[in-house]
Simulated scan of single mutants.
Amino acid sequence: MKYHLSDYLVIGHIARFTAQKNSLFLIDIFHEIYKLEPKAKLLLIGDGDLKEAMMTKIHQFHMEDSVVYLGRREDILQFYNAMDCFLQPSLYEGLPIVGIEADSTGLPVFFSS
């Protein structure tokens, strides 16, 4: 894969960047992980109303080099193999398809309750 993620702890997130998906809190969570593991990368796939606020927060935390933003994509299945775990801290959610996909690849998945 051209993103050179094999030497990193890769936290994956695929979603609409919205309040429902708790997108800003996701950045806070990754910041705490990053402080413990500087070789961590956050792989973001998606887009939405909170994208700019997320990017601002990433910049404020000086984590630009630790976040790989791929935008909105249709070919996401290939990226599960690059992830070490999948994170979805939604405020409210049904059963997200990305969670089923991530789980079916054997990834550890972390969802909010």
Rank of each mutant, 00 (worst) to 15 (best):
I97H: 07
D103R: 08
Y69G: 00
I33M: 04
L50T: 02
I29E: 03
F79I: 14
Y8D: 05
E74P: 02
K57F: 11
D7M: 10
L42E: 02
F30K: 05
E32A: 13
E32Y: 11
L5Y: 05
Y34S: 10
E64S: 08
G94E: 08
L91N: 12
H59R: 09
F17Q: 04
N81E: 09
D84F: 10
L70P: 03
M83Y: 05
T56L: 11
I97R: 14
S104L: 08
F30H: 06
Q78V: 13
P38Y: 01
M63I: 15
M55F: 07
T105V: 13
Q78K: 15
A53P: 06
Q60Y: 09
I29S: 03
Y34T: 06
M1G: 15
I27M: 03
Y34E: 06
D49S: 10
L24C: 10
E101Y: 07
M63P: 05
M63Q: 01
E93V: 15
E52M: 10
P96M: 05
G46N: 06
K21G: 02
G12Q: 03
S23Y: 12
I33Y: 08
K51D: 07
L42R: 14
I33S: 01
I100E: 02
E64D: 13
P38F: 00
V10E: 00
S6C: 08
L95A: 05
E93D: 13
L50H: 07
Y3C: 07
L44M: 10
V10I: 07
A82R: 12
I100Y: 10
L24Q: 05
D103P: 02
A19W: 10
M63G: 02
Q60L: 12
L24D: 01
D28P: 06
E74L: 13
N22C: 04
I45L: 09
K35A: 03
P96D: 01
E52S: 13
K21H: 13
S112R: 04
I33C: 01
Y69R: 00
R16V: 14
S90D: 13
C85W: 07
G46Y: 09
H59D: 14
R73Y: 04
Y69P: 03
Y8T: 11
I29A: 04
H31I: 10
E74G: 14
D75Y: 11
H13P: 04
A19R: 14
G71C: 04
